[in-house]
């Protein structure tokens, strides 16, 4: 005869211990483990990686004894917002143009709007480095800015283009029909409609810029240190536990940014 408890066991097996559940749990654990280790060591009293006791001294040192770090941080922020804004403006216009019109250079726009994204970063870094040297531009914050706009542009273009694909052109015709001119149609109808795409483009650009190390490494000069470059030098030439404290704060910052944006995370994942 049929026994309910047998059925329960089967249901349990089917729903909980599936292969994908186990892999997913392990993978997410794997992704989080290093962050937790960093967090733990940031409160370690010792300079070495061996645990000796609880202390917040590295946090104090981060805030009071690391002026270079904060200068690098400021550089990063300025470049991220500046390059993000420029890339967003240029990329959005490009995406609108490529989606709405057929013109001679459209194929070229779509190719150069795609290629930089799929080439390894080091190639972009090396080629820009040679280019700047070739035209005699002194490597510094300005060249970093130019490079960041360049690698951010394709991402903005892609994200806004995706929005334009779903765009209902009848509203543009409606706007013309109701007497709007090109500029009014653009600012009152097109841009507000694709605003989510523009915003995610801008946020992606800012994130990528803040994050970039490889390209920046090749186009930076003396005195133009960004946060990733500073972190790199800390890791490479003299590890101080201050970096642990910094990591924890940055991870916390990321999480704090991600939580209010959680409704949009799914959109974010699409790219």
């Amino acid at each position: 005869m049929y026994r309910p408890e047998v059925m329960k066991r089967i249901a349990w097996n089917r729903d909980v211990f599936t292969f994908s559940r186990i892999v997913c749990a392990l993978t997410i654990g794997f992704l989080l483990l290093p962050l937790l280790v960093l967090a733990a060591y940031s409160f370690n009293d010792s300079r070495t990686m061996s645990w000796t006791g609880f202390s917040t001294k590295w946090y104090e040192k981060l805030f009071s004894g690391s002026p270079d770090l904060w200068r690098a941080f400021r550089n990063s922020i300025v470049i991220a917002i500046g390059s993000g804004a420029v890339a967003t403006a240029i990329g959005t216009l490009g995406a609108i143009g490529a989606a709405r019109y057929r013109f001679r250079l459209r194929g070229y726009v779509q190719t150069i709007g795609f290629l930089p994204m799929i080439l390894p970063e080091i190639i972009i870094g090396v080629s820009l480095s040679m280019f700047f040297a070739g035209i005699g531009l002194k490597l510094g914050l300005f060249t970093i800015f130019l490079a960041h706009v360049s690698f951010n542009l394709p991402f903005v273009f892609l994200l806004v283009s995706a929005r334009m694909e779903e765009f209902d052109y009848s509203i543009v015709e409606a706007a013309y029909d109701l007497g709007a001119n090109e500029i009014q149609t653009l600012t009152l109808v097109v841009l507000p409609t694709i605003m989510p795409g523009i915003l995610s483009g801008f946020l992606t650009a800012v994130t990528l810029s803040l994050e970039d190390f490889v390209i920046t490494f090749f186009v930076s000069g003396p005195g133009s240190t960004t946060l990733p470059l500073y972190i790199y030098s800390m890791i490479r030439y003299g590890v101080s536990p201050v970096i642990n404290a910094l990591s924890v704060l940055m991870i916390a910052g990321t999480a704090l940014l991600a939580i209010p944006l959680r409704k949009f995370l799914k959109d974010f994942a699409v790219h």
């Binding site: 049929y2 309910p4 059925m7 089967i10």
Partner: peptide
């Protein structure tokens, strides 16, 4: 889907498992 309890019999065979 699995019932918490019950029996589904097709041609004399309990198919729930």
């Amino acid at each position: 889907e699995n019932p918490d309890e019950g029996l589904v019999n097709i041609d004399g065979i309990d198919v729930l498992p």
